[in-house]
Design a protein around this nucleic acid. Structure first.
Length: 487
RNA sequence: GGUCUCGUGGCCGAGCGGCUAGGCACCGGUCUGCAAAACCGACUACUCCGGUUCAAAUCCGGACGAGACCUCCA
């Protein structure tokens, strides 16, 4: 059985056949770096990390491109309002690129913690102004754009005469025209659904570049078309992103690429669904989002406690990527315990004594894992198989089932391949370990205090001496006992 | 208003025509100085109303409910 992926374009699962095997190209819309990454950023990152990892596992040479949007993404109504990054820079009195650097670094740091692999190429919009200008020229030459007061707009009506604008999101242009709302400040456009390719900068606008039309900046949708073409070619295999980007962003990308090359640029469009909180989308505008930092530290009123990065990865992968996923402390706690169960079973497996008899169900488990992944990346199903492994291991450990030497190898392989390599889970102790150690030390210290109170100095000295041997030093001060590690 | 999704047990979530995943919680038991973990068992659901079928959570129609997009959001 081979890999099938749900293609938004056809609304069906399709067999994945790359354009140029053994190569596979994937472009995913990355973050606009004007704020801290939140749970909503984690979902596409992890979803497409899974795609990336699985394609590599299948033997493809994958080029994974994920952009950083650092210019052109505007605040308000269609193609009006302030640049998101420019605004943040103004508010914080920083250079826009300082904002970009700061939040890009933060994004990387938190994605690393979630064990999300870095993409092959991570291009920035501001670093590809020339490519974007060239693409605009091409679209103008082809007659699908017009210049208006120093700005350039994509002519959707003209494009729709030859191609189908709206085919990805299932929209019909005529319907859009009839139900369209008039917005203010759009006198430069022929139609409100036309979108900016180049915007002339207002005097107060900080980020600006020279172009044949005006000093200004590129439209938001353009960077993805320009950069995907540059690094993956005019036609490539997979384009991914959040469902909320389907319209207008991805629709506009299709229009731009098609208008400039005359070709269908993307073969498979993949979209991950949203994370909800109390049934409602978690989003910036709703103010109900929780940043990853808050998750890792527990510092948000919606959180009962801090959750480890792996718990969040597990939580996200336990749902299929195309379904909504509802956040709650109860669900996170369940994920945390589930992850622990897997990790303890894996530990048990390493220590287990093999038996004579073999276990018959392991081949089927491995098979089921591949079946699940091939069926549009059904990660929850893979997890269920891992839990089946855990059950077998624990039962064997209790002497109720058998695992021979070769079964042990197969089980280890299943964990290695599916759990670690493909799902990207890891069982390593995470960053709150120091907190755990400190808690342990406080316990030891209080035991020693009890011993001293009872004048049981044999015990109290034993504690201090034994700790000293492992380079932990205790100091009795007026305010209590302190501990530190001696180098 | 338009377009499109979705409604599964206490919670989260698979399933896509017959064989009724999985995790967490709860309950009973084994084990244990006591806990915890582990194991065994119990609970076993598909919003409602029609239809198709030998057979429907699963297909079709309708009702109700929820959500997403149509404006920035992953």
């Amino acid at each position: 059985m081979e890999l099938s992926l749900y293609n938004t374009l056809s609304r069906k699962k399709e067999l994945f056949v790359p354009l140029n095997p053994p190569f596979a190209g994937m472009y995913v819309c990355g973050p606009t770096v004007y704020g801290d990454p939140h749970l909503g950023h984690a979902r596409p990152a992890i979803t497409f990390d899974l795609v990336f990892r699985y394609l590599k596992h299948l033997g493809y040479k994958v080029r994974y491109v994920r952009n950083i949007t650092d210019v052109g993404h505007l605040e308000n109504d269609a193609d009006e309002g302030e640049d998101k990054i420019g605004k943040k820079a103004r508010l914080e009195q920083l250079e826009p690129m300082e904002i970009v650097q700061y939040y890009t670094d933060r994004y990387h740091r938190f994605m690393d913690q979630l064990n999300v692999l870095r993409p092959s190429i991570e291009p920035r919009a501001s670093g590809h102004i020339i490519e974007q200008i060239e693409m605009i020229k091409k679209i103008l030459e082809e007659g699908y754009a017009y210049i208006s007061n120093g700005s350039v707009y994509f002519d959707v009506t003209k494009y729709n005469e030859k191609y189908a604008y709206g085919k990805l999101s299932g929209r019909i242009l005529d319907d859009m025209i009839s139900s369209n709302r008039e917005l203010d400040g759009q006198e430069e456009k022929h139609n409100s659904f036309d979108f900016a390719l180049w915007k002339k900068a207002q005097p107060e606008h900080i980020m600006r570049w020279p172009s044949p039309w005006s000093e200004g900046f590129p439209g938001w949708h353009l960077e993805c078309s320009a950069m995907s073409t540059k690094y993956l070619g005019e036609q490539f295999d997979i384009h991914g992103g959040g469902m909320d980007l389907m319209f207008p962003h991805h629709e506009c990308e299709i229009a731009q690429s098609t208008a400039s090359t005359g070709k269908e640029s993307v073969k498979y469009w993949l979209h991950n669904n949203m994370i909800t909180i109390n049934g409602q989308k978690m989003g910036k505008s709703l103010g109900n989002f929780i940043t990853l930092e808050e998750f890792f530290t527990g510092s948000n009123a919606l959180l009962d406690k801090a959750y480890a990065p792996m718990t969040i990865r597990f939580f996200i992968l336990q749902a299929h990527y195309r379904g909504t996923l509802d956040f709650s402390n109860e669900a996170l706690l369940a994920a945390e315990k589930g992850l622990k169960r897997l990790s303890q079973a894996y530990e048990t497996l390493q220590k287990i004594q093999p038996t004579e008899n073999a276990n018959s169900s392991l081949v089927e488990i491995k098979d089921n894992c591949y079946k699940a992944l091939n069926d549009d990346l059904n990660s929850p199903m893979v997890m269920a198989q891992l839990f089946e492994c855990a059950r077998i291991i624990n039962s064997a450990n209790d002497g109720k089932e058998s695992i021979n030497e070769s079964d042990k190898l197969i089980l280890n392989e299943i964990f290695q391949v599916f759990c670690f390599d493909i799902l990207g889970l890891s069982f390593e102790a995470d960053n709150n370990q120091s907190e755990i150690i400190d808690n342990i030390m406080q316990l030891v210290i209080s035991l020693r205090k009890d011993a001293r109170t009872n004048k049981d100095f044999v015990t109290s000295d034993k504690i201090r001496n034994e700790l000293d041997k492992i380079k932990i030093q205790l100091k009795d001060t007026r305010d209590g006992t302190e501990w530190s590690v001696v180098e």
